[in-house]
Nucleic acid binder design. Structure first.
Lengths: 335, 335
DNA sequence: ACAGTATCTGAAAGCGCTGTCAAGAGGTTT
DNA sequence: AAACCTCTTGACAGCGCTTTCAGATACTGT
């Protein structure tokens, strides 16, 4: 393992001062063509690569942005991460991901780790950190939040209206003639869950359909909890003709519960999800869902960070949930 | 944005030398209880956090390990990444992920970026870099490869026998009485694809079933290509009773193609996948597949890196593919 | 009481780079 | 020919930390 080359080595064999090499590397000042040539060949022959750590220390900027995600293997977050990565792709910055696992302590720890590395900026994906904390954190370091709306930091949040999204989904079901519509909610602690639940309730009310608490069961956003929730709904009430699941993963679990009982989708029961995960368009039947453009939002978050870092004015980005009708929902047959 | 505190600030207000503070932080030497106390309170009142960049520069170790993955949003890789992250969780190291998108140039670029940051070690997930290059790279930096087997670097590879896995899957189909078994292969350029194809052919031969080239179609490991492949198989040959897909994602696409034509799974056609993605156990019907323990392999890769970095002897880890029988395969009914 | 030893601590040099500052070279102007 | 610019370049002081080295102190044993 040969010692790695330094800028000094380059300077020495190019017979110039380290400053000059630095200037060429960074384009910080004009350098005579001859010296530039010498330096360039020196760099080439040594195979020199600047040490980003040292640059970071000297410049006071690490060229990395920290991303607090919740779980790298969660399909929804993964799409967003891919968007973030793509958004930084041709910039000089690079993202570093750390998972918070939906636990506030882990998220705080993630932020510690990231700030100890002096990341230049932070992207927070969902999570349980409170608004107040993030608001204060944003005073110390440029940050953008994805999937949440923080009062006083509106311009640095990328989110979509969950209520509106849920409303669109449930209205679709109602338009198809359903009125016994169950809801598999997310965990009550999660603000997206409550938003979606509200959307569900609002649309019911708007359509004069009484809200029946028996028709809502909570899960934890994972497939298995959707399956359990569906089973519970089925034993509670047999008049259900449609279910609105707070995310695609639980919809998938619910769909399996139905399959096991021989209940057909969409003929017997219609299902609608939320998120539009990539795989949802390949489920059987392809899932009707409310799309949250995860990748685009991630990409936008990266752009926003870049603007923040370069003190450009922030792009104003608006994302709206969007109903994607596929084959898991159908018109209610009057029986 | 208040200037962030440095070790010197701490030293000053604790009335000790910077060296002493450093010693306490790193446990490098014994320090008298009083000084330790002074320093600790100083750290607490200042809210001091060491600058990892500066530490890295001084120690010559960045405490980060670079991971070259292929696509962060690919379900299989995402599981592996989660395993890696978990494997480093209570170490002082942190992973930094960069995607190569299955393109050699991007992978090389990823390695450049990572080494410019002086990562202490590298984990390579699959990809198209050639063995020779990696073997040479491993001379410069501790590296472990996941999902590939490199001659001369066997101890630093974590992989499973693709042939054996495919064989197990196909044998399962044969045991159920199938002999018209199609294969949806991965891209020919991908070594896992060829391994799985060989496994398929070997088992066919071992059971005296003639290999019919018409029964194999290649996809690109994405869902859509599986759908296309299935459609093609269906037009080519109507006697197919089972299909072995080179991964779960294509199996999912194939399953959709069948659904569209009203062909039942598993009653009319049995399907078996490869990987055992988390979502596969929630497909309709739950997919029979050959499990590749992505998360465990990722975790093992992290452990291996840690061993390498601490010069401990390498754990010898053997992973084997494992048939997971679910509901997408069934005994052939003699018609 | 004194050399010898074991402990703790600070000074200082550096890790690899950047950026300020001032000097030297060459060219203009009057 | 003197005074003044403009350009390019090197010295040098950091960035925030670690680590050697040697000095200071406190204990040994004889």
């Amino acid at each position: 393992m040969s010692r790695t080359r330094t800028l000094n080595d380059v300077a020495k064999i190019a017979q110039v001062s380290p400053s000059t090499v630095s200037r060429i590397l960074n384009g910080t000042a004009v350098v005579s063509p001859e010296k530039r040539k010498q330096v360039e060949t020196a760099i080439a022959t040594l195979g020199y690569r600047p040490n980003v750590m040292a640059q970071a220390l000297a410049k006071g900027r690490s060229m990395t942005v920290g991303v607090v995600t919740q779980a790298i293997s969660s399909p929804f977050y993964a799409e967003t991460l891919a968007g973030i990565e793509q958004g930084f792709a041709d910039s000089v910055y690079h993202p570093m991901f750390i998972s918070g696992h939906w636990r506030q302590d882990k998220e705080l720890e993630a932020i510690e780790i990231l700030t100890a590395r002096r990341v230049d900026s932070l992207i927070i994906l969902g999570g349980n950190l409170d608004d107040q904390y993030l608001l204060q954190l944003s005073q110390q370091i440029p940050l953008v939040a994805v999937g949440r709306f923080i009062q006083g930091l509106e311009n640095q949040c990328i989110h979509i209206d969950q209520i509106q999204g849920a409303a669109a989904g449930v209205q679709h079901l109602i338009d198809l003639g359903h009125h016994r519509i169950a809801h598999i909610a997310g965990p009550a602690s999660h603000r997206d869950s409550t938003g979606r639940l509200h959307g569900y309730q609002q649309v019911l009310a708007a359509n004069d359909i009484p809200f029946d608490p028996n028709l809502v069961v909570s899960g934890n956003f994972q497939e298995h909890s959707g399956l359990l929730a569906m089973e519970q709904l089925l034993t509670r009430d047999t008049s259900i003709t449609a279910v609105f699941s707070a995310n695609d993963q639980m919809a998938s679990g619910a769909r399996l519960a139905l399959y096991r009982r021989g209940i057909r989708v969409p003929e017997d029961i219609s299902i609608i999800g939320f998120d539009d995960l990539f795989g949802s368009s390949y489920s059987t039947p392809p899932l009707t869902t409310v799309r949250q453009p995860g990748q685009e939002m991630g990409n936008a978050a990266a752009q926003m960070v870049l603007s923040l870092l370069e003190h450009r004015k922030l792009p104003s980005l608006i994302f709206t949930p969007h109903l994607v009708v596929r084959e898991s929902t159908t018109r209610l047959r009057h029986s």
